[in-house]
């Protein structure tokens, strides 16, 4: 049973990783990196490591995502203030 759950979550995680690498919007890339961590924390529960699961859920999917978003916001505020033509290219690569 747990093999099925882990296999499904693993497939979603790898798909989310590829999406995080190749999506156009950097915001959705950050969110999908958070999703990877969240699914990993469920896998840790199935691997009988509740301490690691707590840490990964709180840090990996919680605070890391927040730190990414705060940095992105800082960059976007800087970007809005510059007002030059290069303003759009920060979001896509």
């Amino acid at each position: 049973m747990s093999i099925v759950i882990i296999g499904t979550f693993g497939a979603i995680m790898i798909a989310a990783a590829i999406f995080a690498i190749y999506s156009q919007n950097i915001l959705s890339a950050i969110i999908s990196a958070g999703v990877i961590s969240l699914l990993a924390s469920i896998i840790y529960i199935l691997l009988a490591a509740p301490d690691v699961a707590m840490t990964e859920a709180a840090i990996g999917s919680g605070l890391t995502t927040v730190v990414f978003l705060l940095a992105l916001r800082r960059i976007q505020v800087n970007q809005a203030e510059k007002e030059d033509g290069s303003a759009e290219e920060v979001i896509d690569d």
Binding site: P50, D51, A53, M54, T55, A58, I59, G62, L63
Partner: peptide, 14 residues
Amino acid sequence: TPGGGFQGGVVIAS
């Protein structure tokens, strides 16, 4: 119980 200083610290930071 599961958890400890690191997890508790992160909850406080949250």
